[in-house]
Protein backbone atom coordinates (compact mmCIF):
# COMPACT_ATOMS: atom_id res chain seq x y z
CA UNK A 1 0.00 0.00 0.00
CA UNK A 2 1.47 3.35 -0.92
CA UNK A 3 1.74 6.03 1.72
CA UNK A 4 -0.12 8.62 -0.33
CA UNK A 5 -3.17 6.50 -1.07
CA UNK A 6 -6.42 8.19 -0.07
CA UNK A 7 -7.99 7.04 3.23
CA UNK A 8 -11.08 5.74 1.47
CA UNK A 9 -8.98 3.56 -0.82
CA UNK A 10 -7.04 2.22 2.18
CA UNK A 11 -10.29 1.19 3.84
CA UNK A 12 -11.37 -0.55 0.62
CA UNK A 13 -8.05 -2.39 0.44
CA UNK A 14 -8.40 -3.72 4.00
CA UNK A 15 -11.97 -4.75 3.25
CA UNK A 16 -10.86 -6.47 0.02
CA UNK A 17 -8.14 -8.34 1.93
CA UNK A 18 -10.69 -9.59 4.48
CA UNK A 19 -13.06 -10.82 1.80
CA UNK A 20 -10.23 -12.52 -0.06
CA UNK A 21 -9.10 -14.38 3.07
CA UNK A 22 -12.66 -15.46 3.82
CA UNK A 23 -13.07 -16.64 0.22
CA UNK A 24 -9.93 -18.78 0.46
CA UNK A 25 -10.93 -20.41 3.74
CA UNK A 26 -14.45 -19.56 4.91
CA UNK A 27 -13.82 -20.06 8.64
CA UNK A 28 -15.57 -17.17 10.30
CA UNK A 29 -18.72 -17.27 8.24
CA UNK A 30 -18.96 -21.03 8.82
CA UNK A 31 -18.73 -20.60 12.59
CA UNK A 32 -21.30 -17.81 12.46
CA UNK A 33 -23.94 -19.72 10.53
CA UNK A 34 -23.45 -23.11 12.18
CA UNK A 35 -23.56 -21.57 15.66
CA UNK A 36 -26.90 -19.87 15.00
CA UNK A 37 -28.35 -22.96 13.33
CA UNK A 38 -27.35 -25.17 16.27
CA UNK A 39 -28.77 -22.90 18.97
CA UNK A 40 -32.04 -22.33 17.12
CA UNK A 41 -32.59 -26.02 16.49
CA UNK A 42 -31.86 -26.90 20.14
CA UNK A 43 -34.45 -24.43 21.41
CA UNK A 44 -36.96 -25.42 18.76
CA UNK A 45 -36.56 -29.15 19.51
CA UNK A 46 -36.94 -28.55 23.24
CA UNK A 47 -40.05 -26.41 22.92
CA UNK A 48 -41.84 -28.30 20.15
CA UNK A 49 -44.71 -26.36 18.63
CA UNK A 50 -45.69 -24.26 21.61
CA UNK A 51 -46.71 -20.72 20.82
CA UNK A 52 -44.42 -18.23 22.52
CA UNK A 53 -45.11 -14.70 23.72
CA UNK A 54 -43.53 -11.75 21.85
CA UNK A 55 -41.03 -10.81 24.62
CA UNK A 56 -39.82 -14.40 24.73
CA UNK A 57 -39.44 -14.58 20.94
CA UNK A 58 -37.59 -11.27 20.77
CA UNK A 59 -35.19 -12.29 23.55
CA UNK A 60 -34.55 -15.61 21.85
CA UNK A 61 -33.71 -13.98 18.52
CA UNK A 62 -31.33 -11.48 20.07
CA UNK A 63 -29.62 -13.98 22.34
CA UNK A 64 -28.92 -16.28 19.38
CA UNK A 65 -27.64 -13.38 17.26
CA UNK A 66 -25.52 -11.98 20.10
CA UNK A 67 -23.77 -15.24 20.92
CA UNK A 68 -23.24 -16.21 17.28
CA UNK A 69 -21.69 -12.80 16.68
CA UNK A 70 -19.43 -13.20 19.73
CA UNK A 71 -18.26 -16.62 18.57
CA UNK A 72 -17.28 -15.30 15.16
CA UNK A 73 -16.37 -11.62 15.55
CA UNK A 74 -13.89 -12.34 18.36
CA UNK A 75 -11.54 -13.55 15.63
CA UNK A 76 -11.40 -10.23 13.71
CA UNK A 77 -7.83 -9.66 14.89
CA UNK A 78 -6.95 -13.03 16.40
CA UNK A 79 -6.90 -14.63 12.97
CA UNK A 80 -4.20 -12.18 11.90
CA UNK A 81 -2.21 -13.01 15.01
CA UNK A 82 -2.43 -16.75 14.45
CA UNK A 83 -1.30 -16.52 10.85
CA UNK A 84 1.39 -13.95 11.65
CA UNK A 85 0.05 -11.28 9.28
CA UNK A 86 -0.63 -8.84 12.12
CA UNK A 87 2.93 -7.46 11.93
CA UNK A 88 2.59 -6.51 8.28
CA UNK A 89 -0.77 -4.93 8.97
CA UNK A 90 0.70 -2.91 11.87
CA UNK A 91 3.56 -1.73 9.66
CA UNK A 92 1.61 -0.70 6.59
CA UNK A 93 -1.98 -0.17 7.68
CA UNK A 94 -2.79 2.93 9.69
CA UNK A 95 -5.14 2.59 12.66
CA UNK A 96 -8.20 4.15 11.06
CA UNK A 97 -8.18 2.26 7.72
CA UNK A 98 -7.73 -1.04 9.59
CA UNK A 99 -10.55 -0.24 12.03
CA UNK A 100 -13.01 0.84 9.35
CA UNK A 101 -12.07 -1.91 6.90
CA UNK A 102 -12.57 -4.59 9.54
CA UNK A 103 -15.71 -2.88 10.76
CA UNK A 104 -17.27 -2.90 7.30
CA UNK A 105 -16.34 -6.53 6.85
CA UNK A 106 -17.88 -7.43 10.23
CA UNK A 107 -21.01 -5.54 9.21
CA UNK A 108 -21.21 -7.64 6.04
CA UNK A 109 -20.82 -10.79 8.14
CA UNK A 110 -23.61 -9.71 10.47
CA UNK A 111 -25.88 -8.86 7.53
CA UNK A 112 -25.33 -12.38 6.18
CA UNK A 113 -26.08 -13.70 9.67
CA UNK A 114 -29.40 -11.85 9.74
CA UNK A 115 -30.30 -12.96 6.23
CA UNK A 116 -29.76 -16.53 7.43
CA UNK A 117 -31.25 -16.26 10.91
CA UNK A 118 -34.46 -14.35 10.25
CA UNK A 119 -35.98 -16.86 7.77
CA UNK A 120 -34.89 -19.65 10.11
CA UNK A 121 -36.58 -17.86 13.00
CA UNK A 122 -39.87 -17.60 11.10
CA UNK A 123 -39.60 -21.24 10.06
CA UNK A 124 -38.99 -22.67 13.53
CA UNK A 125 -41.37 -20.47 15.52
CA UNK A 126 -44.84 -19.15 14.85
CA UNK A 127 -44.39 -15.40 14.76
CA UNK A 128 -47.02 -12.84 13.89
CA UNK A 129 -45.23 -9.92 12.32
CA UNK A 130 -47.00 -6.61 12.75
CA UNK A 131 -44.47 -3.93 11.89
CA UNK A 132 -41.88 -5.01 9.30
CA UNK A 133 -40.21 -1.62 9.02
CA UNK A 134 -39.60 -1.35 12.75
CA UNK A 135 -38.30 -4.91 12.81
CA UNK A 136 -35.82 -4.41 9.96
CA UNK A 137 -34.77 -0.98 11.23
CA UNK A 138 -34.01 -2.42 14.64
CA UNK A 139 -31.99 -5.28 13.17
CA UNK A 140 -29.99 -2.89 10.99
CA UNK A 141 -29.16 -0.49 13.84
CA UNK A 142 -28.38 -3.42 16.12
CA UNK A 143 -26.04 -4.92 13.52
CA UNK A 144 -24.19 -1.62 13.08
CA UNK A 145 -23.75 -1.21 16.85
CA UNK A 146 -22.55 -4.77 17.31
CA UNK A 147 -20.10 -4.51 14.40
CA UNK A 148 -18.62 -1.25 15.73
CA UNK A 149 -18.21 -2.38 19.33
CA UNK A 150 -17.09 -5.91 18.63
CA UNK A 151 -14.44 -4.74 16.15
CA UNK A 152 -12.98 -2.43 18.79
CA UNK A 153 -13.26 -5.00 21.59
CA UNK A 154 -11.70 -7.81 19.58
CA UNK A 155 -8.54 -5.70 19.28
CA UNK A 156 -8.27 -5.86 23.10
CA UNK A 157 -7.64 -9.59 22.83
CA UNK A 158 -4.35 -9.25 20.94
CA UNK A 159 -2.32 -8.82 24.13
CA UNK A 160 -4.35 -11.13 26.36
CA UNK A 161 -4.44 -14.83 26.99
CA UNK A 162 -7.65 -16.93 27.54
CA UNK A 163 -8.98 -14.92 24.63
CA UNK A 164 -12.35 -16.45 23.81
CA UNK A 165 -13.73 -16.41 27.36
CA UNK A 166 -12.45 -12.89 27.89
CA UNK A 167 -14.23 -11.54 24.81
CA UNK A 168 -17.58 -12.64 26.21
CA UNK A 169 -16.84 -11.02 29.58
CA UNK A 170 -15.67 -7.65 28.26
CA UNK A 171 -18.26 -7.22 25.52
CA UNK A 172 -21.40 -8.01 27.52
CA UNK A 173 -21.57 -4.87 29.71
CA UNK A 174 -20.70 -2.59 26.80
CA UNK A 175 -23.29 -4.16 24.49
CA UNK A 176 -26.03 -4.46 27.10
CA UNK A 177 -27.85 -1.17 26.30
CA UNK A 178 -27.94 -2.20 22.65
CA UNK A 179 -29.27 -5.65 23.50
CA UNK A 180 -31.93 -4.35 25.90
CA UNK A 181 -33.30 -1.86 23.39
CA UNK A 182 -33.06 -4.33 20.53
CA UNK A 183 -35.24 -6.76 22.48
CA UNK A 184 -37.66 -4.02 23.53
CA UNK A 185 -38.14 -2.77 19.95
CA UNK A 186 -38.39 -6.25 18.43
CA UNK A 187 -41.08 -7.12 21.00
CA UNK A 188 -43.02 -4.06 19.87
CA UNK A 189 -42.80 -5.10 16.24
CA UNK A 190 -44.51 -8.41 17.15
CA UNK A 191 -47.36 -6.79 19.09
CA UNK A 192 -50.50 -5.28 17.64
CA UNK A 193 -51.67 -3.19 20.57
CA UNK A 194 -48.64 -1.03 21.36
CA UNK A 195 -47.97 2.27 19.66
CA UNK A 196 -44.51 2.43 18.12
CA UNK A 197 -42.12 4.41 20.23
CA UNK A 198 -39.74 6.09 17.81
CA UNK A 199 -37.70 7.56 20.67
CA UNK A 200 -36.27 4.12 21.37
CA UNK A 201 -35.20 3.77 17.75
CA UNK A 202 -33.50 7.17 17.98
CA UNK A 203 -31.76 5.97 21.13
CA UNK A 204 -30.39 2.98 19.24
CA UNK A 205 -29.20 5.20 16.37
CA UNK A 206 -27.63 7.67 18.81
CA UNK A 207 -25.84 4.87 20.61
CA UNK A 208 -24.40 3.64 17.31
CA UNK A 209 -23.14 7.11 16.33
CA UNK A 210 -21.55 7.81 19.74
CA UNK A 211 -19.88 4.41 19.80
CA UNK A 212 -18.54 4.87 16.27
CA UNK A 213 -16.90 8.14 17.27
CA UNK A 214 -15.51 6.69 20.51
CA UNK A 215 -14.13 3.62 18.76
CA UNK A 216 -12.40 5.75 16.17
CA UNK A 217 -10.71 7.85 18.88
CA UNK A 218 -9.77 4.98 21.17
CA UNK A 219 -8.51 2.61 18.49
CA UNK A 220 -5.42 4.76 17.89
CA UNK A 221 -4.25 3.93 21.43
CA UNK A 222 -4.75 0.21 20.88
CA UNK A 223 -3.06 0.01 17.51
CA UNK A 224 0.17 1.98 17.98
Amino acid sequence: MEINTSPFRKVCLVLYKEILIEYRSPQRIGVLLMFSLTTFSVVSMALGSQSLTPPFLASLLWIVVFFSAIASLAHSFLQEQQTGTIYVLRLYGGAQPVLFGKLLYNLILLTILFLFVVPLFFMFFTVEMVDWELFLGTLLLGAIGMAVLMTLLSAFLLAAHNQNALFMVISFPILLPLLLFGILLTTQSFQTDTAVNLKQLYFLAGYDVVMLGTSSVLFDYLWY
Binding site: F156, I170, L218
Partner: peptide, 11 residues
Protein backbone atom coordinates in the same frame (compact mmCIF):
# COMPACT_ATOMS: atom_id res chain seq x y z
CA UNK B 1 -5.39 -1.49 27.24
CA UNK B 2 -7.22 -1.33 30.57
CA UNK B 3 -7.19 2.48 30.28
CA UNK B 4 -8.92 2.24 26.90
CA UNK B 5 -11.52 -0.13 28.35
CA UNK B 6 -12.11 2.17 31.29
CA UNK B 7 -12.76 5.12 28.96
CA UNK B 8 -15.06 3.06 26.73
CA UNK B 9 -17.11 2.04 29.77
CA UNK B 10 -17.22 5.69 30.81
CA UNK B 11 -18.91 6.54 27.49
Amino acid sequence: ISAVYSLLACV
